[in-house]
Structures are given as structure tokens and as C-alpha cells.
Amino acid sequence: MNDAETMVLPRLRPAEASGEDPWGEGPGAVPGRPPAVTPVWRIAAWLVPALMMAALSAVRAGGPGPRAEEVPAWHAATSSWRDILHWGEVTGAPYHLLIRAWAEAFGTSELALRGPSVLAMTAAAALVAATATRMFGPGTGLLAGAIFALLPTSARYAQEAQPYALTLLAAVLATALLMLALERPTVWRLIAYGGSVVLLGLCHVVALLLLVGHCWTVFAFRRGVAARWLAAVAVGVLPAAALLWSAMGQGARLGSVYHPSSRLLAELPGQLFGRAAVGGVLLGLALFSLPLRYSAAVYSAWAAVPPLALLLVAQAAPIWEPQYLLFTLPAWATLGAVALVRLATRRTDL
């Protein structure tokens, strides 16, 4: 299969293009450029979600703590540098070292130690909106960022001193840089993408399952770039692989003792999205975004492939935890925004 804008449909003649792209997502073999808009509108598309996320995150970030899940971060903040490297899970050492350095500069209050998570989620909301704006237009970008900011789990993990907010930001950054690298695979863009993979793996090694979704995107749409992409990934995963090897050598556990039972899988939408009803709505909207145009397919692979990969891995190793999939939230939010805009466009055309 040659690189193409769709996986299934043959190359259409110009007269047929409108039938292939009824929502105006842009023709051609590279991601379609949205219509020209004013700079103010383009800035507002990412600034408004960022401000929403910052406000929602700060509401309870200074609340009483630490919560049970935050105890390791508080321990790291008040320990010596040497102690951090000798206790806890090896794979969590990069985050604990970051928290130790952060505490050195800003103190160990609840608000201070949750600051990295607040900043990471705020930056993630802005980047979610900016990337969706580039792929679909500012209206979709603004809506995607707003949906992401309003998800209950976005605010929750922004208010906790855990690595998941930073992991989510790294996943958004890696996917945004992947899109740039696939559009024009220069050396510097591939190096930037490889650096984002390093960051992703150091934040949380399980989040590297995002690369399975990236792999699907590359081999489905940009096979000519596959060798260079594989080289960037191979270098990018080395630090996380070294940490994982060290953790296995020390007999450390990567995650919980849970295998994905039918009960745990049934609870996943509520735990991942904060409310089961919210998860049901987003999943339903995402189904409307599944036609395999390049732009929507990138997000579909980001949203759906890592959970399936984790499910397969968890059959052999008990590492199933819903929060490990938090990095897929931006993809679900964007697919929901795409569906809503498409529905509005279809209603307008009737």
C-alpha cells in the first residue's frame, strides 16, 4: 500500500474529492490545512482551554494532603538525593528526582508539590487545542481543548503530585511532533520526536504503549518514513528500557497486582473519564470520527490502540491500572470535538 490520505479508498479524481471529504478536512497526502483564520481566533483556540484548565486545576490544588497516592512524592521531596535512588520503584525515580529539585526551589507545601501537575495539565490543554487547530481548524481545536479541560479526571490528576499529568503532556507533545515529522521528515524534526519519546518513557514506562498507535499511523499512511521513524524510536526508548531493566534486576514491580477482569474492564470508562456517562458519550462520539482519513485516524490510533496493547500485555503481567491510560484522554476529547463539529456541519447542510 502506498502512502496515501486514506487507507481504503482509491485515489479519487478531482471531481470526486468532495465526496471523499464531506467535512472539508483537506485534500492531499499531508494533513489538510484548515481555512485561513485571523491570528486572534487562532490564539484564542488554545489560550481559552489553557485558562480553563489552569482555573479548574488551581481550585483544589492547595487542599489538604498528602493523599495516599501522593505519599511517595512527599517522601521524595523531603529525602536526600541519594535516598531517592535507593528506595521505591526504579521506574519512578525520574519523577521523584524532579519533585526533589522542585521542592528545593519552591518548598514542600501541598500547592508547591502539585505545581508540576497543574502546569503540565495546563500546557497539555493548550497543546491539545493547538494541535487539533492545526489538523482540523480553530473551531475544532477550541472545542477539543475545552472538552479535555472539563473532563473530571483532567482536573483530578492536575491536583495530585503524581507523574500522570506530566506523562499526558509528554504523550501530547510526542504525537504533535510525530505529525510534524510525518509531514516533513527532516533530521531535526525526527530528533525532536525522539526526544519526546525519551521524555515519555521517563515519565512513565507504560506510556510507551503510545508508540504502538504511532506505529500503526506510520505504516498505514507514511511507510516511506518508517525506517527513520523506527530509528528515532529505538534511540528514544533506550533510557526507559535501561530503567526497566534495572527495576527487573531489583525485583521491583512495575504496577499493581491486577489482571484485567471483566469487572475492571466494565469500570474503565468511569475511572478513565471520571464519570461513566461522560465516557459513554465520548466513546459514542468517537465512533462518528472513525472514517480513516489521516487526521482522524491519527487520533483514533492514539485513543484505541494503547488500551488494546495494555490489555494484551496485562494478560501476561499484572500491570492493569486505569490511570496508566490517562494519556489517551486528549485523543478521546479531540475525536469528540471532531464528531460534534461534523454533526453541526451536517445539520447546517440539511
Rank of each mutant, 00 (worst) to 15 (best):
V30Y: 07
G195L: 15
Q159I: 06
R100E: 00
N2I: 14
A77E: 02
G92V: 01
A68H: 10
L98M: 15
P10D: 04
A333K: 03
L244F: 11
R33L: 12
T186L: 04
P10A: 00
G28M: 04
L199C: 13
L243Q: 09
G19Q: 09
R263Q: 13
A316W: 14
P306E: 02
P185D: 01
R222S: 11
V206Y: 11
A126R: 11
L254A: 10
A93T: 12
R228T: 14
G251Q: 07
A296Y: 02
H259N: 07
P39E: 07
P318Y: 12
A277F: 10
A304I: 09
A112F: 03
P307C: 02
A68C: 02
V237Q: 07
S57C: 14
A165Y: 10
R223T: 01
G145H: 08
A234Q: 08
A149Y: 06
W302R: 02
A105W: 02
M1D: 03
H204V: 01
S300E: 08
G62K: 04
T186S: 15
V341M: 13
F106T: 12
A124E: 01
L311Y: 15
L202S: 06
W23A: 10
A339Y: 00
I319T: 05
V48S: 04
A101N: 03
V30R: 08
I43L: 15
P318R: 11
R342F: 00
E89S: 13
A45E: 06
L177S: 11
L254R: 05
P27I: 02
P72V: 04
S300H: 09
S246K: 13
A29R: 14
E69P: 08
G19H: 08
A17K: 07
